[in-house]
Amino acid sequence: MFDFKYRFQWRQVINNLPAMLDGAWITFYTALLSMVIGIVIALTLLSMRRSNNVALRSVAIGWVSVARNTPALLQIYFLYFGLGAFGATISSWAALLAGITFNNAGYLTENFRGGLRAVPETQTRAARSLGMTSFQAYTRVVIPQLLRIVFYPITNQMIWALLMTSLGVVVGLNNDLMGATKALTDLSYRTFEYFAVAAIIYYVLAKLTFGVARLAGWKLFSY
């Protein structure tokens, strides 16, 4: 039925595994960094969203809306080549990081907004009446509880970020897992072999991240 003319060549993939694993590390810390910055921005957007200033609120709403309604690939491409037309040249990695962070911030803002509804308003008032400033009440009472509620969505977003860092290759990134894999296939045309191994590495990365997050969540929130 099928005529297999193709002969698999795995040896060179094994030989180049170290380069791919180096790439996996870059993939991982890029995703992690995009999450850390994304969470900070999301918390800022969240308070902007709740502010009475129309301009601040519109920026927050606009950010979330653009992040939700346009593809990450387009955003990254736009950040690299669109902004470049203005003379604002950023590196491939910076464009990738900015694109992923932009999305993380947008999606997390929505998650946090949902989570916030679960933290009763009375708590803020109680904190204020204990003499805390509004900022203190937000950072010491609301956010810790919020983080507990949104921990699971944050984990999901982290895995999304991990997988989406593979888009850096469209703006010339060549040292993350996807970029390194692509560079190796360019030389050898062993597309299937290299990408199959890359897929396994991504899977393991995603599962490790999930496992570590589960453990951390269990340790952190088991009070």
Binding site: Y80, F81, G84, A85, G87, T89, S91, S92, V171, G172
Partner: peptide, 11 residues
């Protein structure tokens, strides 16, 4: 095109 843009924009 991406390559030309990259030179033109200074990437």
């Amino acid at each position: 095109n991406d390559t030309i843009l990259a030179v033109d924009q200074g990437h």
